[in-house]
Nucleic acid binder design. Sequence first.
DNA 1: CCTAGGCCTTCCCATCATTGGAAGGTCAAG
DNA 2: CTTGACCTTCCAATGATGGGAAGGCCTAGG
Lengths: 171, 171
Amino acid sequence: MNIGQAAKRSGVSAKMIRYYESIGLVPSADRLESGYRDYAEDDVHRLVFVRRARDLGFSIPRIQDLLELWGNTGRSNGEVRALAASHVSELEAQARKITGMIGTLRGLMTSCERAGHRAHCPIMDELADHHRPPPVRPKAKARTVAGRQENDTRGAGSETVGKSGREVVGR
Amino acid sequence: MNIGQAAKRSGVSAKMIRYYESIGLVPSADRLESGYRDYAEDDVHRLVFVRRARDLGFSIPRIQDLLELWGNTGRSNGEVRALAASHVSELEAQARKITGMIGTLRGLMTSCERAGHRAHCPIMDELADHHRPPPVRPKAKARTVAGRQENDTRGAGSETVGKSGREVVGR
DNA sequence: CCTAGGCCTTCCCATCATTGGAAGGTCAAG
DNA sequence: CTTGACCTTCCAATGATGGGAAGGCCTAGG
């Protein structure tokens, strides 16, 4: 079957299949005389294996380890478990980081609500470390920040502060 | 002060300061005659603001919004809260994804332990969807998968696998 | 047989935030 | 004046993925 079929059956996009082949994660597919890649059932199984491992958050180098273990019916069990365990602790570290952020933000949001809409937002105070906003807000751009920006044209910059037109990146 | 000092004081690397300037997140720094960037206290405060926002996981476009709100002492409170709330739900989605993976993996690991070291590892069975490992294991490397490679050791199977003369993509 | 259009091929570019390095200019101390 | 630490700009790479161009292949319908 060709790469499109293999992609549909495995749930891995054709782009990714070619990429995995290029980095050596999966073996180079056979080629038809036309140059088309030709996949067999086993190749699809391997791709499914890769996809599932990715769905569980394994990085590509780790998946390579897993694939090697898979082909090695002998001493798999303990090593697989070790791999999984170390992956789990990485995931836990990530989760801790995120839940830490969530906790901080929720705390700030709560005190922000209590402050009512008239006072300074404690979120801002925290971010700013209780400093006043600097008088000059971000102005000129260059490479653009994905998704926001437009013309600007801040020309000459003799003005001290662009109170006139829009300054920055308006949306 | 020069960029190195500003970096030390703000906790943002000099590289990142230049990058933030290039995308317009922070205003272009003043320059000395030598061409060196020159930073004042307010610039450092702004950089601290950016760093803290990043530590809370805000993306750069969002930080841009936050900076605008910071400079806008008027209608900050509610908008800041809204921004924070939507960020929190993004974080929660990430956390759910990760804890889901952890749950799955822990379940698999447990049944793997119960299976003892003699049987097939259920983790593998699950990844492989109960298929046998394909006879041809990953072989050639091209771009290399970060961090591993060489030493390979899979000498055993010199069985005609690579029938086609074709070889690694190369480039 | 010819053609349309759908699939395939390779190659390049972009993402997102960050780091690394090269080549060269500047500054301060010895 | 030299040395070494710092600065400047520019380019590249990361990890995993998607987008798209330019061109080749294949198949069905006329």
